[in-house]
Design a protein around this nucleic acid. Structure first.
Length: 555
RNA sequence: UGCCCGAUAGUAUAAAGGUAGUACGACGGUUUUUGGUACCGUUUGUCUAGGUUCGAAUCCUGGUCGGGCAACCA
């Protein structure tokens, strides 16, 4: 019984090519980030696609930095990108840079000049723009378009030699100023920038444009399937034109729709703005949709890969529910994360019939989803415990299965308690709850015969440790940030980060950086990179599904 | 008013001329020492008008709607 997995349209193309023996059946892909920012979850989609294709069809994938613009690119970004790709679980065959090919590209440019297919233009950016026409009107040639091959060679060589200041001249391809495709109206190939490059230093003062670097780099690397996003569709004609005129390996470009997710932005430009204007603490702020931000938030590589697998690959524009990402991380962490107890908004419970000064050690399993509970830990219990303030109601509605006057609940892994009394301050705030407990209801050896509907979490007062807990919510208030009118900063959620000090069970003092936990009934949390023995810090990755909260909202 | 790309439940994504399916969400239920998990069930869809065909989400034509293209960015 072979249930055939349905293929996305790119896999179909690849399989078709393999069937036809194209490129000897080889599949070479590349992931080509520009090192001008950190990778985000949209890149993860591309990474999973490109590396996944190669894995699936016995090929290989290069990591190639598209570093043709020295003024925006930095080594810091190179390093973060490599770390993120590795962390996602992918291995590249070659670490390459478009800047590795600057000499070759320069020779390609001279080749085209000698064929009469490129010329040096002295016009200003404004002049070039106006001479390009508009989408509905053809462009018009200028005087420089008819320069001789010799003159072009001389001028371009002089550009290369640093004879001209920034912006004085550009090299353009001589294609077709009347083309209905604006990209074909004599696109720029090289511009002058007297700027130091993160890898080539001061060697160059002219740098190739994307269009004269990307396809050629693909070709040099024998990339068979060059996969990019939709906005490059109009560039494909030019991509093919350069390859044809240079008579080099015919890489082919295919385009898919980029990822968008509700309540967040997916552009490096906007993310950089969030960082620079201190709306977040950095590229790896746990609210950021960056790989490093998600990692710090507690998302695992596997959950991100699962997400990328579920969203699919197609050409139509899309806006994915954030809840799908949340589903993916909950699904994994439910199976793997150890359970612990933490009280985020505490109120004290005194168990009046529990002998003063007495304490005992109870046991809780690490994960009820795992066979044998995946081990367990000791839980100290005493006469006074903290419980969640919201787990007590003075006037409890019918279906409130927690604590209230006369109501009974089980303390998780401990005893059943019954609320006998409570204390309020002048402001009407509950300061203390008095309960009695049933000694024969001890967890695991309950002979009390009492049935309770609710179980709540708790932490023993004398044994409790404290921790800072960072509660994250969506960064933006608007669902579709891609189509939100106006300044995106106006949609920033002022409550995207709330910090509380919580009481946590003592075992959590041993938690290690990056370790994931489920705080029972509260959600999944991970140890933040800033956490220390002196000051424990946890980030909330995601809440648990909360059907009670919905119930409350309805009424 | 040029050229290009797209349109299937709320959101994504399948169905390669032959029963419109899956996931997430939503809603309801069972189980439960997490109001979690698991399990069961319900709901909602082919942009439109023609054409080809025994038969169209699929092929053809027109329209509508959405997106992209005129950076010395990628």
């Amino acid at each position: 019984m072979s249930e055939k997995k349905s293929l996305n349209f790119i896999e179909e193309i690849v399989e078709e090519d393999i069937r036809n023996g194209k490129n000897g059946g080889k599949v070479f892909t590349r992931f080509p980030p520009e090192p001008n920012g950190y990778l985000h979850i949209g890149h993860a989609k591309s990474i999973c696609l490109n590396f996944g294709l190669a894995q699936e069809y016995g090929g290989q994938t290069n990591l190639r930095f598209d570093d043709t613009n020295p003024v925006t690119e930095e080594t810091e970004y190179v390093e973060s990108i490599k770390a993120d790709v590795k962390w996602l679980g992918f291995t590249w065959v070659n670490e390459l840079y478009a800047s590795d090919y600057f000499d070759v590209l320069y020779a390609f440019a001279l080749n085209l000049i000698r064929q009469g297919l490129a010329y040096v233009d002295d016009s200003s950016p404004e002049e070039i723009a106006s001479q390009k026409g508009t989408p509905t009107e053809p462009g018009t040639p200028n005087q420089y378009r008819s320069r001789s091959v010799e003159e072009n060679v001389t001028l371009f060589t002089e550009m290369h030699d640093g004879k001209y200041p920034d912006g004085a001249k550009v090299l353009r391809a001589k294609v077709d100023l009347t083309s209905p495709n604006m990209q074909m109206r004599d696109p720029l190939m090289y511009r002058i920038k007297h700027a130091a490059h993160h890898r080539t230093g001061d060697k160059w003062c002219i740098y190739p444009m994307y269009d004269f670097a990307h396809g050629q780099s693909d070709s040099i690397e024998n990339i068979t399937h060059s996969v990019c996003t939709l906005e490059f569709i109009p560039h494909r004609e030019l991509y093919n034109w350069f390859i044809e005129k240079l008579e080099i390996f015919p890489s082919q470009q295919y385009e898919f729709a980029r990822l968008n997710i509700t309540y967040t932005v997916m552009s490096k430009r906007k993310m950089l703005q969030l960082v620079n204007q201190n709306f977040v603490s950095g590229w790896n702020d746990p609210r950021m949709p960056t790989i490093s931000g998600l990692r710090r938030r507690g998302y695992t590589a596997a959950s991100i890969r699962e997400f990328c697998d579920r969203i699919g690959i197609a050409k139509r524009e899309n806006l994915i529910d954030f809840s799908l990402l949340e589903f993916c991380i909950r699904e994994e962490l439910n199976k793997t994360a150890w359970r612990r107890m933490a009280v985020l908004d505490p109120v004290k419970v005194v168990i009046t019939n529990y002998p003063e000064g007495q304490q005992e050690t109870l046991h809780g399993e690490n994960n009820p989803e795992a066979e044998g509970g995946d081990g367990g830990r000791d839980l100290p219990f005493s006469r006074e415990v903290y419980i969640e303030r919201e787990d007590f109601m003075e006037q409890a509605p019918k279906k409130f299965f927690r604590l209230g006057p006369g109501l009974m609940v089980r303390l998780k892994n401990a005893y059943i308690v019954k609320c006998e009394d409570f204390v309020k301050d002048e402001a009407g705030k509950i300061t203390e709850i008095h309960c009695s407990y049933f000694p024969e209801s001890k967890s695991g050896q309950d002979t009390s015969g009492i049935n309770v509907k609710g179980t709540i979490h708790w932490v023993s007062v004398p044994h409790a440790k404290t921790a800072e807990i960072r509660l994250y919510d969506r960064l933006f208030t608007e669902e579709d940030m891609g189509n939100a009118e106006g300044d995106f900063e106006d949609f920033i959620n002022p409550n995207s980060l709330t910090t509380v000090t919580a009481f946590i069970e003592p075992d959590l003092a041993q938690a290690e950086n990056g370790q994931n936990f489920q705080f029972i009934r509260k959600g999944y949390f991970t140890v933040d990179q800033d956490s220390s023995v002196e000051k424990l810090i946890f980030n909330r990755t995601v809440t648990l599904k909360d059907t009670w909260a919905k119930e409350v909202q309805k009424s």
